[in-house]
Amino acid sequence: MLWYVGRRLLQLIPVFFGATFLIYFMVFSLPGDPIAALFGDRPPSQAVILALREQYHLDEPFIVQYLYYVGGILTGDLGTTYSGRPVGDLLASAFPITFRLAMLALAFEAVAGILVGLIAGLRKGKLFDASALVVSLLLISVPTFVLGFVFQYVFAIQLGWFRTTVGPGAPLQDLILPALVLASVSFAYIVRLTRGSVSDNVSADFVRTATAKGLSRPRVVRVHILRNSMIPVITFLGVDIGSLMVGAIVTEGIFNINGVGGTVYKAVQLGEGPTVVSFVAVMVIVYMLANLLVDLLYAVLDPRIRYAK
């Protein structure tokens, strides 16, 4: 098992270089001049442009720019944005916020989703099940920005339970409302996945045998139904950690959160190679670690899944 984890971690290295190279190339190929974009309508003097070009190696060929960048990473320097701020700083301020938001959303969707899905699956065809299906369908079909504005209006403006936007430093209580919005669609999917998987397992032979052994209903549900139903849900959660961590542009926009999504969006518009590439590289790593975690959880949940020693 250790060997397996080690091998998976080693795989991160080539993937990291492959991903950064590709992203760097794509940003390089974007049309438009980053310096011109930076100054907008009032172009600076030719001397300033040249100085900036040289500072950011924009006059060099692509491969040289990339090597400068990789060299920087290896010495701990992620470069600077065109406005002079170190990319490292930007990462350090944006990722913790997104991380908190993502974890909050994940906790909400996992706990509530599995619970609702489990009850719906056990009571298939009953009122609770039918309502859960309708609500989840609604959540899936309503676009995030609509739900975001509705939540903001109802819970923050009308009821005053939360602050309308997230304050500086993004304290946890301010993030609850955006986390709910962010989690809503995944919550709906988890309800449906859990429900389907539970209702399959309820009629499984081994569940009947477990009951025939004389076990109580709660124990049968907990030990023999829930655990067996978690595999598809865990898969989904794993993928979702990835997508939550790369940020949510719409939700961040509505609640004015300075997270990863918005930062990357701005950087792409400005053509800031180092910023985009650093952020995406971190995202790729987060994604891969989340996948590794899911694969390890599989082995814990289902002994039939064996890894080569």
Binding site: F206, T211, A212, N228
Partner: peptide
């Protein structure tokens, strides 16, 4: 629940599907 297992045992049909795989 007290009758099952304790007073009346049950041996099911298909050994492949009647033990929990996990």
């Amino acid at each position: 629940q007290d009758v099952r297992g304790r007073l009346i045992g049950y041996v099911p049909q298909d050994p492949m599907s009647n033990l929990n795989p996990v």
